[in-house]
Amino acid sequence: MRAPTEAPKKTAGSASLALRRSALLVLLIAAWWAASLFSPPYVLPSPVRVMQRLVTLAESGDLFYNLFTTLWRVLAGFAVAVAIGVPGGILLGSNRTLGAFFEPVLPVMNTVSSAIWAIFAIIWFGLSPLTPIFVVLMTALPLIITNVWQGTQAVNADFVELAQTLRFSRLKTLVKIYVPSILPYFFSGARLAFGFGWRVSLVAETLGASSGVGYRLRQASDLIQTDQVFAWTIAQIAMMVVIEMGLLAPLERHLFRWRRDVRT
């Protein structure tokens, strides 16, 4: 018998994908530029103008300061959501009575708009970093709890029985059977929560903060600095793409490399 050969090389496929993506980007920018020729800069600034604005924002340090301020708030709210949501989801999943009791809370929490959370946060915390953090937390928490809860339901009872025959302690069973079984669910919930969290943090910052990307967007729009609005928008999209493609996607590929690839 021979060891299985390496998975087929995918470089050719990914090269053509990169080409198609670049083509799409060029096309969009061209369309934007063409449209900007027919409109005043305060309605639609040209790509060149926005680029220039981005450069000045970056040079002054303003760009990265505010991007990282927002990122830090998202991460803080997200971290608290994970710290509460993971044990909470496991608890609800492992206790039927508790789960049935709390079940209606999650969909209700999901229907509450992030603007409402932001208003509550302003009432409670005022213009402070706690406001966006709170909004991110309240948005991320139900997503993480729901997914972890679902994950506990998906744990294979046969694997638990296997752990029993091996006389694993409860802790060992938790670590070696439950955690790896729940991890894919947690991960997809966390990814969703992070993306939502980022978006709602901007909403919260426009309403109740004195720094961060959301605050600067609001400021720029109040002063009708449309080129700045575009610059901040592009910067925050770029940041999310980098985090998504540079961190989360490779992490997911590594963590779940044991999965059979179902994509074609």
Partner: peptide, 28 residues
Amino acid sequence: SRLGYMFQDDRLLPWRTAVDNVGLALET
């Protein structure tokens, strides 16, 4: 520990390689 059990299904943990699946029995 003096008893081994091979189930009706193979019950291999999908997230572990073959060698780590075998090693599981030694993790007690």
